[in-house]
Design a protein around this nucleic acid. Structure first.
Length: 158
DNA sequence: GCCAACGTTGGC
DNA sequence: GCCAACGTTGGC
């Protein structure tokens, strides 16, 4: 897999809400429900073909479990106009939608989760904003040095 | 623009 | 359940 593109994003989801297995079944999904401007702005810079680590959060243990790929960008998040949705945003107007998102496809599930604890042991906080205390972003850019190392470890536990 | 109060995220 | 670290809101 020498030609494989390095992942440059990490996106979190609580497996109770949406897991890697859900994505595997659906094959692809729109990553809707992001209601944080910083995360949204990061998603707006995504490119088709970008590789994305799938991170299971708020579970035991939390960590990287799989890989996804961006297949479409800048889609309007439909949940913002759905008053039945928990992500409904009454301030967002159809003529000027506030929230958008990419479409992602399933690539693979790793043999084991790479836990946050292991990740924290491998990297310095400067290497990985993921492990910086207080980072509550659900969309995180991953620098290539870190992505390369993570991928090396993850490919070996398959 | 400041900042206090409040809400959310997510590891532990 | 606790709490740190943010982000958001709204009065001034």
């Amino acid at each position: 897999m020498a030609s494989q593109k390095l992942p440059c994003w990490l996106m979190k989801s609580e497996p109770d809400a949406y897991s890697i297995n859900d994505l595997k079944k659906e094959k692809e999904t729109i990553w809707d429900g992001i209601r944080n401007y910083q995360a949204r702005n990061l998603m707006r810079t995504m490119q088709i073909g970008d590789q994305v680590f799938f991170y299971h959060s708020n579970c035991k243990p939390p960590g990287i479990i799989g890989l996804m790929e961006v297949i479409e960008t800048n889609l309007i998040d439909p949940t913002q106009f759905d008053d039945q949705s928990k992500y409904f945003d009454p301030k967002s107007k159809r003529e000027n939608p506030r929230w958008d998102c990419p479409r992602l496809k399933y690539v693979k599930t790793y043999g084991e989760i790479l836990s946050l604890k292991e990740i924290s042991n491998i990297f310095t906080p400067e290497d990985l904003i993921l492990v910086r205390k207080g980072n509550r972003l659900s969309v995180i850019p991953v620098i290539s040095k870190v992505a390369k190392k993570l991928l090396g470890i993850l490919e070996n536990i398959e």
